[in-house]
């Protein structure tokens, strides 16, 4: 006779372990991407989708004021694309990165010899538009140490969420032609023919393009962390 587990629940000690991931679904826009969440430099409303719900239901705060961060301001845009090459209009992209000096604003980065920047946290969140495009304004990160105690090339950690994504997809953005890409220990683990999917391409001055292909031709490399 099959065991009936339906009597178990969240509080059952025998089930204790990682909470399973679930999709964000299609209706997260009034709950997650706040105004300014995609602008790590200034005070714009970038990142939110106020077109998707009435203004009286905008209860999330606007990002509080902060000092202008040090470093080279860059803009990153890209399209999230599905397995048929169609844009994904209900995805959410998050970034996490070091400041211009290569320090993370995190209690787990204990390197006191590399300065923090009071104007920079390094976390951003953007919903894609109807055209599947997301956009961030941030600063170009500095280099941080990696395995083997070599410096990693400048990079930004990227998470992708959406309807149809039962789990967060994790990837990295590197800068095409960037200092240290050749000896970066993480890029070295990626099959050579797929490395280009992790390289943002320069557009106009300070503008970088980073498409995220969820499936199929040119599928972005996603990581098992």
């Amino acid at each position: 006779m099959a065991t009936d587990n339906r009597g178990l629940d969240n509080q059952s000690q025998e089930l204790f372990g990682q909470t399973p991931s679930q999709t964000v679904g299609p209706f997260f826009h009034y709950g997650l991407p706040w105004k300014g969440g995609a602008d790590l430099v200034g005070q714009s409303g970038m990142g939110a989708r106020p077109d998707l719900f009435p203004p009286e239901h905008c209860v999330l705060n606007v990002a509080p004021p902060h000092a202008r961060p040090e470093g080279e301001v860059i803009e990153i845009t890209g399209r999230v694309i599905d397995g048929e090459g169609q844009p994904v209009p209900d995805a959410m992209v998050e970034i996490w990165q070091a400041n211009a000096a290569g320090r993370y604003a995190s209690p787990d980065d204990v390197r006191s010899d590399v300065p923090l920047d009071p104007g920079f946290i390094g976390f951003g969140r953007a919903a894609t538009g109807a055209d599947g495009v997301y956009r961030f304004r941030t600063i170009r990160p500095g280099r941080v140490p990696g395995a083997g105690n070599v410096l990693q090339a400048p990079h930004i950690a990227v998470s992708v969420f959406g309807r149809g994504l039962l789990k967060r997809l994790a990837t990295r953005l590197y800068f095409a032609g960037g200092e240290g890409n050749e000896e970066d220990p993480v890029l070295a683990l990626v099959p050579a023919e797929r490395r280009a999917t992790l390289l943002a391409e320069p557009q106009a001055l300070g503008a970088w393009r980073f498409d995220i292909v969820l499936q199929g031709d040119g599928e972005t490399v996603f990581f098992d962390l």
Partner: peptide
């Protein structure tokens, strides 16, 4: 149509 077909690449954790 939204899940990767290629295997995930395992990476060792870094400060990132």
């Amino acid at each position: 149509l939204r899940s990767p077909r290629q295997p995930l690449v395992h990476i060792p954790p870094t400060l990132t």
